[in-house]
């Protein structure tokens, strides 16, 4: 087996520690406020990686698109998104916590009609959504990331009785993309190994407010 540099793994770890205490309700609830009944979302500024409100959102269910910088070619993206108490991640039809927005090529066009796609999402302890969408293999070209790539959904978690006026801070704790260059099978193993890495990105998140 070839050598591996531990740098990337360590960087990921440090990042996790640095941000792990993020999240939680950032504003105290106003006194005697009414129970929250709906959610609003303000999109973040900027044109890099960000979560933008999707038109399919309803007052009680917030749907967010992950959008990347235009012109950047990628083959997939995964991220861990922490939500504070009072919010819960909501599933899409079929029970999945992430929805394909149609940019990435998820099937390999192999013979298997039941081919599993690399689309995965779950909620880990600490209300942490871990979700990913990826193109398998290397035959499909990388795609322009300047469009909605996948969707996730949030709703009020009535178990925690959130009050109207509460502001929720979402934080993306880890996010990585599969870059355009993943090497070629004809590369030297060492070269190929270095290219078989995901690249860290940071994702801007807007503000969620309960109404």
């Amino acid at each position: 087996m070839m050598n591996r540099t531990p740098t990337l793994a360590l960087a990921g770890l440090l990042l996790s520690f640095g941000l792990a205490c993020g999240g939680g309700s950032s504003a105290p609830a106003p006194q005697a406020a009414a129970p929250a009944a709906s959610l609003s979302y303000t999109d973040p500024a900027g044109s890099s990686w960000r979560l933008l409100k999707d038109a399919s959102s309803t007052p009680t269910r917030l749907v967010l698109n992950l959008v990347g910088p235009a012109g950047t070619l990628t083959r997939g993206v995964g991220f861990n998104l922490k939500a504070p108490e009072g919010l819960k991640f909501d599933a899409f039809p079929g029970g999945m916590l992430i929805q394909d927005a149609g940019v990435y090529q998820l099937l390999s066009n192999a013979l298997d009609p039941n081919e599993p796609v690399a689309l995965v999402g779950g909620v880990k302890t600490g209300n942490l959504l871990s979700a990913g969408i990826y193109q398998k293999g290397r035959d499909q070209g990388a795609k322009d990331s300047g469009a909605a790539l996948c969707r996730i959904a949030l709703a009020l978690d009535s178990a925690h009785r959130p009050l109207a006026g509460t502001t929720f801070t979402l934080s993306v704790i880890k996010a990585r993309i599969i870059p355009e260059d993943i090497g070629s099978p004809t590369d030297e193993p060492f070269t190929l190994d270095r290219k078989l890495r995901m690249t860290d990105i940071s994702v801007a998140v807007g503000t969620v407010t309960a109404r």
């Binding site: 990826y134 193993p189 078989l196």
Partner: peptide, 29 residues
């Protein structure tokens, strides 16, 4: 699969780009 000491959906990216790759592959993938 990405050996960052955390099991999460991000790891699947590593599987995705090693899918059916026959050389240069770490066993962790």
């Amino acid at each position: 699969a990405d050996q960052d000491l955390e099991q999460d959906a991000v790891d699947m990216g590593t599987l995705a780009f090693s899918w059916y790759l026959s050389n240069g592959l770490s066993l962790a993938h």
